[in-house]
Design a protein around this nucleic acid. Structure first.
Lengths: 260, 260
DNA sequence: CGCTAAGTTGAGAGATGTCAAATATAGTGG
DNA sequence: CCACTATATTTGACATCTCTCAACTTAGCG
């Protein structure tokens, strides 16, 4: 890893990064056992009894405002973060300033796993709207999971899932056309909205065309053109960031069942 | 993940896949404590005392012939595999048959981590030459790491490192030009050869142009052209798969310090 | 009501892909 | 040992896709 940690950060968001969001508990402690994202999050697949182990850790819930930075590339790794509500993006910046979005994160998803390897975060994480997160101190997680097989399994499985997710993205970036990428992206968002109880047919994107493009390895103009083309083909109704999938089957048949 | 597990596999290698290499111990049990790849592999950073825990597991060493398949996409996940000698490639295949190489693996590197999430391998792994591997039964690993914090840390760290590695590859696929990709690839191989005690300036590639191209998200012709261009610029001496880096600094200055 | 940023659209440029041919290499069988 | 075949690699010419640059529209905000 010779990606420079001191690389200049070029936030795409308008909102100026006023203050770094510290991982320090500043809000009330929370109970995983009563959390609505429980099934999607770290406690997924863990028994009620074992979830109490998590409840006893100093997991803090905190609001993060739109555009705020949760952690930067190179920051010391201390916390894992779980999204309670809202959307985040994580990105990597090269020495020359080029930035690439490496993921978007929704409720229940864990962020910061890439920091475990070296003790420093390998990516940067910024909220795309007003959000709520849980800061999970990693020290206790690794200590407790030494005695709780279930918790250990949960962490390991989440990491493995992250590896698989990145495989899919590599596939997308390495061998798919612009149309396929955009379709795969929309179907992926749709599926994740669905998993969270929202409509899979109609949703509001939290990210700009530039951020989508960065994630998909293409320019914002190409994203825009592709969305317009899909609309003309009757697959979508696009109104700025509001997307309605009008022909789900066609979108899937044409480009789907290939990613995630 | 709707990547079809039953997808037809299109091996690039000449050598017909005679028999599936089973993860079952068929060779002598090995001691991690005496292994020369120890520092790079799973035991890395673990104390001598703890390595004995690994030695007590039924880790089997076995030869794998060139072109043999270690596991396929969709196979049940039972073993992690460590490369003892030689080179492997792993790849993902889409429903329509498109294949993308997702990694090359050298001595000491762990393969199969993507199978933990679902209990089935999410990629396919094939040896590029006659090799030796260690099959590490995953059940015991997870059992023992419930009591050994050091082993648990080692596994977790290796997984996190894999996530970071894939981040780099995403960056490469998403925002780098063909020349940058090839340079980054060569520098990465060079660095890994160096870490294994080989010359970082001169090495033999075990993979075809097509496999390199698949890994880097470009066509084999483009790989070939790029190598020729580098040779003309005096950066490399290329003789088929034998590479000599004649101007390391220029290669790094021009394209390096950007990847891994 | 003007300002700013996001998004759309068009025209032309450039990078990489496609197709095809030539060369080189390794393995095979006579 | 040698011709033969299959494969890998290189190189050229051309096509195509995505990018670049630019103008314009729309929405949100003070």
């Amino acid at each position: 890893m010779s990606i420079a940690f001191e690389a200049p950060i070029h936030p795409i968001r308008i909102i100026p990064v006023v203050s770094r969001a510290e991982g320090v508990p500043s809000a009330s402690a929370v109970g995983c056992s009563t959390c609505s994202s429980r099934k999607l999050c770290l406690p997924g697949g863990i028994s009620e009894a074992e979830i109490e182990l998590l409840d006893r850790m100093a997991i803090a819930r905190r609001r993060v405002r739109a555009g705020e930075t949760l952690y930067r590339q190179g920051d010391r790794f201390q916390y894992l973060y779980a999204v309670r509500s809202g959307t985040f993006k994580s990105s990597i910046t090269l020495a020359d300033g080029r930035e690439q979005v490496s993921g978007f994160h929704m409720a229940g998803e864990l962020m910061g796993l890439d920091g475990i390897a070296s003790g420093h975060h390998a990516s940067c994480c910024i909220s795309l709207e007003d959000t709520e997160i849980c800061s999970i101190p990693y020290g206790p997680v690794s200590t407790i999971s030494a005695t709780s097989a279930a918790l250990q399994t949960a962490v390991t499985r989440l990491m493995s899932r992250e590896i698989v997710r990145e495989h899919s993205l590599m596939m997308l970036l390495g061998s798919m056309s612009a149309e396929e990428r955009v379709a795969a992206f929309l179907l992926n968002i749709s599926q994740r909205m669905n998993a969270r109880g929202y409509s899979p047919h109609e949703f509001h994107l939290r990210m700009s065309r530039a951020e989508i493009g960065s994630y998909l390895g293409m320019k914002l103009e190409t994203v825009s053109r592709t969305l317009s083309a899909f609309q003309q083909q009757g697959l979508l109704a696009v109104d700025r960031r509001h997307i309605r999938i009008t022909n789900f089957d066609a979108l899937e048949r044409g480009f789907g069942s290939r990613f995630q």
